[in-house]
Nucleic acid binder design. Structure first.
Lengths: 138, 138
DNA sequence: TTCGATACGCACCAAAAGGAGAGTGTCGCA
DNA sequence: TGCGACACTCTCCTTTTGGTGCGTATCGAA
């Protein structure tokens, strides 16, 4: 899990200077994480994982509570990052559909643990919130 | 992974009305996910997982690139959600330290898969981005 | 002939996120 | 006397996020 940090630490010890390659990799990993650790991205990812190929409006309906603007943006970013493929069928009215790539499916699988965590422990989280609120107020 | 949605679908089929309990649970899961799927939360979580107990400034230094404001906010929210314990030692100068709870450690473990994904596939992501940019421009 | 369906783009606006920097309180050290 | 250490808080400011509503293109149906 911490391969990069460990490698950096090792290299730092060895040469007393942080190599730029690892710095670039670390920042990229962070950037990717920051991108992907997004509410809408996670929700769209899950919708596509569950339903396979989806059309724009359909996807929005399944995700629920997302505006067209955010759906467009999220889908575009996911396409840019290689998580989904966008297929345009040049017919009228327009027909566009979205499918997860292998990369997207892998990410979805990686997020599986977080979903499980949330489903398993949400009661503990609300209990903690209640306790916190009482401690603050009382 | 999709236990809640499946349960809801089953109940919906059976009674033609969505029970409010599951709706509440689903919204709570979403809320928890939205909270937890945050860049700073993930980074702080990892820092604490790696280093055990950390003090405020120390934690900020390890996370890197986080402002005091965001560090305070992130830590407070994590405390509220029962992910960390905040211990104040009433000495001067002040000494406060933060440790993951069991819940926090579980979440950290759940995020492990996402970190691994990012470290494994970041090259594919940048390749996808380059390809996307070229397709857009060219 | 006009309406609806689809998948957006665009413009405008409100709210939230987030950064920079100054202030706080007390002690020990110089 | 005055500065630094720590863990913040507070204010001011900019940037990002996100919502709403309108425009668009074209075809078939009413």
């Amino acid at each position: 899990m911490h391969a990069i940090r460990e490698a950096m630490a090792a290299m730092h010890k060895r040469s007393e200077e942080i190599p730029p390659v690892s710095k670039a990799v670390e920042s990229l990993v962070r950037q990717v994480i920051a991108q992907v650790a997004d509410k809408w991205t996670m929700l769209v990812l899950e919708a596509l994982e569950e339903h396979g190929t989806l059309r724009f409006t359909e996807c929005g309906r399944i995700v629920g509570g997302i505006s067209q603007k955010m759906l467009t943006k999220t889908l575009r970013e996911m396409e840019r990052d290689g998580l989904v493929v966008r297929t345009v069928h040049p017919v009228i009215p327009p027909h566009v559909d979205y499918t997860l790539t292998e990369l997207g499916r892998e990410l979805s699988a990686a997020f599986c643990g977080v979903w499980t965590w949330a489903e398993t422990y949400h009661a503990e989280v609300s209990a903690a919130r209640r306790a916190f609120r009482e401690r603050e107020e009382g």
